[in-house]
Computed example of a mutant assay.
Amino acid sequence: MVDKTDKIIVGISIGDLNGIGIEVILKTFEDKRMLDFCTPVLFGSVKVISHHKNVLELDVPLHGIAAINQINHSKINVLNIWKEDVAVALGQATKISGKYAAKSLEEAVKHLKEHSIDVLLTAPINKETIQSESFNFPGHTEYLAANLEGKGLMMLMTSQLRIGLITGHIPISKVSDAITPALIREKVKTMHASLKEDFGISKPKIAVLALNPHCGDKGVIGKEDDEIIRPTLAAIAETGVLVFGPYAADGFFGSETYKQFDGVLATYHDQGLAPFKALSFGSGVNFTAGLNAIRTSPDHGTGFDIAGKNKANATSFKEALFAAIEIYKTRKEYKELTKNPLFVKR
């Protein structure tokens, strides 16, 4: 049993009120043993979460609080950040559900920055309905990068595979122009540091995927791989970083070459997420690496089609919770080790 005073406080933004986010949160904490690992704090409303409980017929006790200093380390805490009644329309994308998803996220990030929670776990949002004057971002990753310190890197991970994205939520038509030597260096540096500090890998090996099919076939299909990516990786490798590529993405995953590396960088969103979800959908974790605070989330979306039907699988959310806890511990240990003057970097 973890000493309650030492338990990691996990802040949880509840995501879109009409999706499956609250369902997977409740299902995760149906198992009371989860409270041995952490102290959860949900940012939202006991009324809204209780509505989901009743619809889903889940017996998960909640502890409503009005301030973070009222948390009970033996209970599932809900920090009530609004008092008004909010209409819940399960399975529907509405501006109301987007508005309160943003409220939950903003309040959770505020507490993360104030260090009143240790890590942040985010339930899925709807990227259209959440848009407003205060939230004008393509997704969580960009919002967090704008509100926290560091260089954010979207990383999808399981115990077998970690895929980061050189470009994130941008149109495919803009990817080629966005792939610059500076951006490649930044993302390799961020992944390299994260693999060391967050995963305890002393000499990480990183693979970078090609932008064009067959690595451009020596310019026949495209010149970016030979003129931009390859020379940039060669220059990075000369600094001692173990970075390799570019690799043609189809063969890289088809031959299971990814198993030879600690991290993989894809050049664009679907190049990384399509194989990742094919290999591990339902058990993967989305981690925003490179920031001064830890945030994870499940690898799925709002699931409007199954919302309120008690069909959502909580495995990915539970994995995201465990990942946040482990990364927090590893990062803390790394910082302690590097403070030691006898510590020698390898």
Rank of each mutant, 00 (worst) to 15 (best):
D3I: 03
D3L: 11
D3V: 10
D6E: 14
I14N: 00
I14Q: 02
G15I: 08
N18S: 03
D36R: 14
C38G: 04
F43R: 04
G44C: 05
V48R: 06
E57M: 11
V60R: 04
I65K: 00
I65P: 02
A66F: 06
H73E: 13
S74P: 02
N77P: 12
K83Y: 03
K99E: 06
E114N: 07
E114A: 15
H115Q: 09
S116A: 07
I117N: 01
P124R: 07
I125E: 01
K127Y: 06
I130K: 06
S134H: 09
G139Y: 01
H140V: 04
H140D: 05
H140L: 02
Y143C: 06
A145Y: 05
N147E: 11
L148E: 09
E149R: 10
G152C: 13
S159E: 15
Q160Y: 15
L161F: 08
I163M: 09
L165C: 10
I166T: 10
T167R: 03
S176M: 10
D177L: 11
I179H: 13
A182H: 11
K187C: 12
V188A: 00
K189M: 10
T190E: 02
T190F: 02
H192Y: 08
A193T: 10
E197R: 13
D198A: 01
N212V: 12
D217Y: 01
E224C: 11
D226K: 14
A234V: 06
A235S: 03
V241R: 12
L242A: 13
V243G: 02
Y247S: 13
A248W: 08
A248N: 05
A249E: 15
A249F: 07
K259C: 01
F261Y: 15
P275S: 03
G284H: 01
L291I: 07
N292H: 03
I294R: 08
H300F: 04
A312F: 00
N313Y: 07
T315R: 09
F317E: 10
A320K: 04
F322Q: 03
E326F: 01
Y328D: 12
K329F: 07
R331S: 04
K332L: 15
K335Q: 15
K335R: 15
V344W: 13
